[in-house]
Amino acid sequence: MELDLDESSLAIGRIERALSRIEKALASRANRPAPVGTAPAADQSALKAEVAAVIGELDRLIAEADRG
């Protein structure tokens, strides 16, 4: 089934809420004292790679929308 504009708006709403969750989690983490055990380096690298990939995908989508 193809998505319509309302579903597109819903997707954007989901993205906004998820970003807000990330922002809140990072702010909360910055205010906490550093934990004794830190996340494994491999996990952190994977997280960074996923963030970069999502940002790249968003950039591609925005460029495509700009081209019409």
């Binding site: 579903e7 997707a11 970003l19 989690a25 997280l47 996923e50 963030v51 995908e57 989508l61 495509e64």
Partner: peptide, 19 residues
């Protein structure tokens, strides 16, 4: 575009869960 947006929403929500 909508499909891509939905996929991005899925991925960002997963990222939020991990963060």
């Amino acid at each position: 575009n909508n499909r891509a947006l939905l996929q991005i929403a899925d991925r960002i929500e997963a990222l939020a869960g991990r963060v």
